[in-house]
């Protein structure tokens, strides 16, 4: 007798908790329109707002004259924990003063080894680096992940501190 009561009690308890759970899911079933929770990924690409601080990939900031602020001090290379940056510098003769100055030849960035930790951006004394908000970074070939950050033909902006 006892076991039958226990059995029936179990059933009613089960139905009870089922009901309380279904109330929650039922609410969302009938109110789905008001509260859209999931979106199909590429569909919202136009309206998608990426926060300005989002760390997608390291870039070098260039202005409209194709000039950047990097003087080749290699601070970013030293700050990087993963060796993702290699700054190749060059020495040229300054025509005005006749002294030789250091400029960057290539600022090589291995995206494949980057952990997006932001340390290089912070370390740069002339704010030449920044993070951009790109997020579709998958490629088919590993070589495509190596970038030269200074754009072709670019040169250093005037009066950048050394």
């Amino acid at each position: 007798m006892n076991s039958i009561i226990k059995y029936l009690k179990g059933i009613s308890q089960g139905l009870n908790t089922l009901w309380s759970g279904m109330k929650v899911t039922g609410y969302y079933f009938f109110n789905a329109r008001k509260e859209i929770i999931t979106v199909q990924y590429p569909d919202n690409k136009d309206t998608l707002k990426i926060p300005e601080r989002f760390r997608g990939r390291v870039i070098m900031v260039h202005d409209q004259n194709n000039e950047h602020a990097c003087n080749g001090c290699t601070m970013c290379e030293m700050a990087c924990p993963n060796g993702s940056i290699k700054v190749i510098t060059d020495k040229v003769l300054d025509p005005n003063t006749g002294k030789s100055v250091r400029i960057i030849d290539q600022h090589v960035y291995y995206f494949s080894m980057c952990t997006l930790c932001n340390l290089c951006v912070q370390a740069c004394p002339s704010d030449a680096l920044a993070m951009d908000g790109s997020y579709e970074n998958a490629v088919f070939n590993r070589e495509e992940l190596t970038f030269v950050l200074n754009l072709p033909g670019s040169k250093i902006r005037d009066n950048v501190k050394d």
Binding site: P51, R53, F54, R55, T115, L116, C117, N118, Q122, M131
Partner: peptide, 20 residues
């Protein structure tokens, strides 16, 4: 994401303070 710039691997604390 808005404050730290990352969703999972935030790296927001640094010795001495905060990144942003």
């Amino acid at each position: 994401e808005e404050t730290t710039g990352a969703r999972l691997t935030m790296n927001y604390n640094t010795p001495g303070g905060l990144m942003f």
